[in-house]
Design a protein around this nucleic acid. Sequence first.
DNA 1: ATAATACTTGGAGTTGGCTCAAAGTCAAGA
DNA 2: TCTTGACTTTGAGCCAACTCCAAGTATTAT
Lengths: 126, 126
Amino acid sequence: MTIKEVSEKYGLSQDTLRYYEKIGVIPPVTRTSGGIRNYTEQDIGWVENAVCMRNAGLPVEVIAEYCRLFSMGDSTIGARLELLTEQRKKLIEQKEQLETEISRLDYKIGRYEIAAKTGVLSWEKD
Amino acid sequence: MTIKEVSEKYGLSQDTLRYYEKIGVIPPVTRTSGGIRNYTEQDIGWVENAVCMRNAGLPVEVIAEYCRLFSMGDSTIGARLELLTEQRKKLIEQKEQLETEISRLDYKIGRYEIAAKTGVLSWEKD
DNA sequence: ATAATACTTGGAGTTGGCTCAAAGTCAAGA
DNA sequence: TCTTGACTTTGAGCCAACTCCAAGTATTAT
């Protein structure tokens, strides 16, 4: 698969794909004899991994570290497990933050709906 | 309350508090006759609002827009309701992204735990 | 063979959200 | 009175994560 196709499939710019490879968020991509990127299924697996992790807000640095450990082989399994566990913890915290803010918003929105209907503000501030 | 106290109470730097005020994430803070910031309960309410919204990842621009609308009075209630509803939707999407990634991580972590115990990788790639 | 298109690299520029520094004002204590 | 320290403003600097550009090479279509 060419960089263009991968770019379209995952909604990443070609620049971003090259950038990800450069900083190690994905391992070096397979090339044609002419040096052109030719993404294999494996390469694409790494792209998917990067997309998911980025969508969840993991820093590129962390994803790159995971790739680096992976490339070093089985001796880094413990370290990779630790890295993933730590990130999981952070995501759960974020999720809780989000839930808190969503209920705050729900409350506010509820009050605004009443206000919009009645034209009357049923409260004091913000 | 002085800027120092507010800074310590909410874990924001004094610079950040001044920055928030400057860009309108919080409305102009009450001042002493000498022009020194003297946060009232109301002002602090706005700070809390900013902290919650930022913790959930809302852009400062959006928070500032809400403040702006608020300062314009009751005629903007509809617009404020719309803004909050839109942001709520985004937060829910983000939450879903997070949940997706958390289960992906759970799956990976599960495999790594087995690998760490048995020393054997029970799968092929990443 | 040649033009158009797609690719390459390296490096500079952009955006969001702070963060720091310089230079100045002011109030309280020795 | 002088100094200390907290405050003020304006503006520059920084980091993450892209994003764009220039200059050059390779592939494809005619």
